[in-house]
Nucleic acid binder design. Sequence first.
DNA 1: TTGACAACATACCGGGTAGTATGTTCATCA
DNA 2: TGATGAACATACTACCCGGTATGTTGTCAA
Lengths: 217, 217
Amino acid sequence: MVLAELGTGEPVTEGARIEILDAAAACFMERGYAATSIDDVARRLRATKGRIYHHFSSKADLFAQIFRTGMDMNFAAIEPFRSLDEPAVAVWTKMARTHVRQMIVTRAYQRVVWEGVEMHLRGATTPEQRSQFNELVEYRTQYSNVFRAQLARARDEGDMHFADLSIANQMMFMALNSPIFWYKPRPGESMRDIDNIVEQVVAFARGGLGGKETEEP
Amino acid sequence: MVLAELGTGEPVTEGARIEILDAAAACFMERGYAATSIDDVARRLRATKGRIYHHFSSKADLFAQIFRTGMDMNFAAIEPFRSLDEPAVAVWTKMARTHVRQMIVTRAYQRVVWEGVEMHLRGATTPEQRSQFNELVEYRTQYSNVFRAQLARARDEGDMHFADLSIANQMMFMALNSPIFWYKPRPGESMRDIDNIVEQVVAFARGGLGGKETEEP
DNA sequence: TTGACAACATACCGGGTAGTATGTTCATCA
DNA sequence: TGATGAACATACTACCCGGTATGTTGTCAA
């Protein structure tokens, strides 16, 4: 399954790149960055290292491009709701649902994003890669700030109640991201089943943020 | 700082064992299991591999003993509240506060517990270690069930509202455990500051579980 | 005093891994 | 048609890491 969609104007070889990204993301999800070897990724593709190093300069580069692709997909998904003229809590609900669905559908990429942020926080990178990592984490912070702004607005509008905005935002993302850790696809699972999970996750987050119940799904 | 307390009846060498556990837990927290070498742990102790392999049979054994120690501390911490004769939501609140404090104070050990559960879910262990890992994860499941039982009772008593018990328990632990990812000790931090964080985390979790506000801290 | 053992340190080995250098194949285009 | 280069595969190297085998030192009991 190719998760990162192919842009129509891109060169043909873009497809090969994305195949590698998908395989690598799956490997990183299953074993983590350090425990995944380039040969593992190659084996999953029924190929060898040569193919990977032809498209990516290093293991870290491969990891970083997965990170970026994951965030690109997240931004694209919430784009329609960013500047909606509605109460903040309504905008937040739409974005939150979309985000959780993203976590489920593209969870391999999102696990890489998670581990990337963790690696950055732990400072486990070489100096040159550091600047590229900084840029990626900054990219994720921007995404986080989109939600943060809605939280602040919703609190001002009296629809949410929490003490500290930063902590609230942290906890909200922990809740909304949580499916990347415990969600496993079930055989014969329908969209309804996934939407049911999404609703429960969003309901938990909204409750944690001191938000009111909403009616329509 | 020695986190795992020394039992009075234990042999003298127990102190050396705990020193190693602390150092290893700190290393595993900073870099993760796979990226941490035994030499890293030894360096932190200003010692060499010999010291570690004199007390532990393997890297996995070291990891497992940290896991067990972390869970031992968690069980001990909530023990006073387990069979309290109060409304479930009140018991839950006491246990949740204690748990979050544990996550902050013993976070190195708790990170190992987290990674251990993840490794188990991903099935990244050798067959012989598998049974020991199964036992440890079972141990953690028992701990989880203590909270789960309170959630079920609280819902029956009308003090909490959620759709699926398993998902609610999952999300609750994601929230309560979250400090192990984002908490960093500040210089000159007081108990009050930590208690403030604990209250916000517990408040988020309670809200997510559809719980009523409580009065007394 | 000595010898026996715990508690390490030192030295070493084998396997795995990131990265590179060098083929090989096949399509495209002058 | 032949030359060129993209897209790989193969072969190889240097290094790191888990684990072991062996040496060293201090302590303590007989």
